[in-house]
Design a protein around this nucleic acid. Structure first.
Lengths: 341, 341
DNA sequence: TACCTAAGTTTACGCGCGTAAAATTTAGAT
DNA sequence: ATCTAAATTTTACGCGCGTAAACTTAGGTA
């Protein structure tokens, strides 16, 4: 490996003894050039380690090899993990992913989509904010760019949707809770997205199916600071003794984490062992749920399946020229029994 | 706003009644064109909403307006937050930040740097992995690209370093702990970066200064799964009754979070109230520290100051053509007294 | 050995924009 | 009204690469 700098593809082509366009072909698909040619280029590559100018490449390709990934909130480890998972799969498929976070703000989401559009990406994987999203902007975007929605759906938008089947996962947990103790009440915030709404509906359905009376507790609070809401509202309600059941199913793990902290501080013992007066369960199997006190019983979303299928769908969509829509998928959750319920 | 699509700057210039290069000037600095001209362009802008092709722009500019942000692990909310903070400041300064995560893997870090280099960014803000980092690669990178290190330093690399002053923050906590109870032992993993090492050294120093005998407990385990290590090693050591002090200062909050879970499960009561047999403190004021059981006493790093100063330094560096190095800075931590110690 | 075809390579052109240098306009002073 | 320096705009060229079309070559067949 010499340290000599190669300025451009022309120069590199000269070094390797082939014409520039041939080198270009090679970089677009190494298998498309003759074996002997490929060998020459690769030999030169080892010596000079040249990389085509990204900007020139993207300017001239009809479609870039970029894939945009948009999540509502990266500071939530759940999304950080799934984004990482998706990134990896994109890279393996030969694309260049880049991840953006809406940070819970609709304007930011629109801004990201604008930026993304101007990058002419091959496709986009979008986990929308949900209710707060600017529906029109997203619709327009999906019209222009092959887009797969994941995690949270927006009806009739995007080529397809990949997510969890809340109507499977929530009843699973409800069944378990009813089977092992007092039927749960449901602790939620004003739904930020369809998932939250579906979970509540799934809870109502499951309870009715089992012949129990459902009971929804709505915590006041907005935004994405779930722990905070779970904590402060949890404290308030606990101190008033106002939870209608000793079993509380939270709309997601982050609310449950807040509630557990509230219970701890209020002196309410949570868990399934002797001397506990409250059971708490969550939903998602958040990376931190293993480390709550007590550890949180929850339903694990199938990260791997969701990210894999999302990428697959997007690639299929890209392959097909972005025209035909692709089948969506809802994955089942898995019960994770820990100590809190 | 008509829906007519503008293909390129040429076309847009025609619509606004000025020449293309003038439009180009406008986009580089609106103040650099005559007021009447600006008005024309902006009128047209409202009608057609045109954006210059990013790739063409970046291909031709000597230096792009891109800024790279590299963190060791975005799934750690601490880094997610600081990255977000930095992003915002870059945008405000008229740059286009993009964030990358090494995911704890040195190869990935090198890969990111390679990608970044080929993007010819104006500058890079790098929080290196630390010990695991490939020093040579990073050194070479910093030689080519104006780079400011933050959070974790690598001696003699990069134009400057911005971070926390562990030799202030750790003694602060040690003082507090000694003042309020039994002097702490120090619970750490094999240091992944200079911060971890400095914290231990600062602990040793602080204890000696106070005339106490320091005591370091090394948890076996590697990587960035701090909670896991804190938890499993915590359980082991607790069950053996092997912590040499009833006060445990953890190298960071994430280890403390794991340890708290271990204590809870082992039936060891943590806190400063009657009936507690253990005190636990952390370092960083991790976003989740408020919600541990009990809530975690820790030292808050000055997120805001670090991110602000990092960006300022980088901008100064870019301004100066990347030549002259810029002053570094270490910010003080603030004691956050909660319930665990 | 001559010939054919498919695979691979080269020629030639354009992508959309930055920017130096030339040409023009503006504004202040006479 | 006229001149001049400064401010602004235009002309002209190049950036690094993708890609269609023209051109070679390799490898197999009769």
């Amino acid at each position: 490996m010499t340290d000599q700098k190669i300025k451009n593809m022309e120069e590199f082509a000269a070094k390797s003894g082939v014409s520039r366009p041939t080198v270009s072909k090679y970089f677009n698909d190494p298998a498309s050039v003759r074996k002997t040619t490929r060998a020459r280029i690769e030999t030169a590559l080892e010596r000079y380690d040249f990389r085509p100018n990204v900007y020139a490449v993207n300017q001239n390709r009809r479609l870039t090899k970029n894939i945009g990934i948009v999540v509502p909130y990266v500071a939530d480890p759940f999304f950080a993990e799934i984004a990482r998972n998706i990134e990896k799969r994109c890279i393996d498929a030969g694309f260049s992913p880049s991840t953006y976070s809406s940070h819970g703000r609709p304007e930011q989401e629109v801004e990201i989509l604008d930026t993304l559009r101007s990058m002419r990406p091959a496709g986009v994987l979008l986990a929308p904010l949900g209710r707060a999203s600017d529906r029109k902007s997203i619709e327009a975007f999906c019209h222009d760019v092959p887009t797969v929605l994941f995690d949270s759906n927006i009806e009739d938008i995007g080529a397809t949707f990949i997510g969890s089947d809340n109507f499977q996962s929530v009843p699973l947990l409800v069944d378990y809770l009813c089977r092992t103790g007092e039927p749960p009440c449901f602790f939620e915030m004003a739904p930020v997205n369809p998932n939250a709404k579906k979970r509540r509906d799934a809870y109502l359905m499951a309870m009715n199916n089992l012949g129990h009376t459902p009971n929804v507790i709505r915590a006041s609070g907005e935004g994405w600071e779930f722990e905070n809401v779970g904590y402060s509202e949890g404290r308030r309600i606990l101190s008033e003794g106002a939870f209608p059941s000793q079993t509380i199913l939270c709309s997601n793990d982050r609310i449950a984490i807040g509630l557990l902290a509230a219970a701890y501080e209020t002196g309410v013992h949570v868990g399934i062992t002797e001397g506990c007066s409250l059971r708490v369960a969550g939903h998602d199997d958040h990376p931190f749920s293993k480390f709550t006190c007590p550890s949180l019983t929850t339903v694990a979303q199938d990260y791997a399946a969701i990210s894999e299928r999302s990428v697959e769908s997007l690639l299929a969509l890209i392959e097909g020229g972005g025209n035909d829509s692709v089948d969506g998928a809802l994955f089942k959750g898995q019960l994770v029994m820990r100590s809190s319920a």
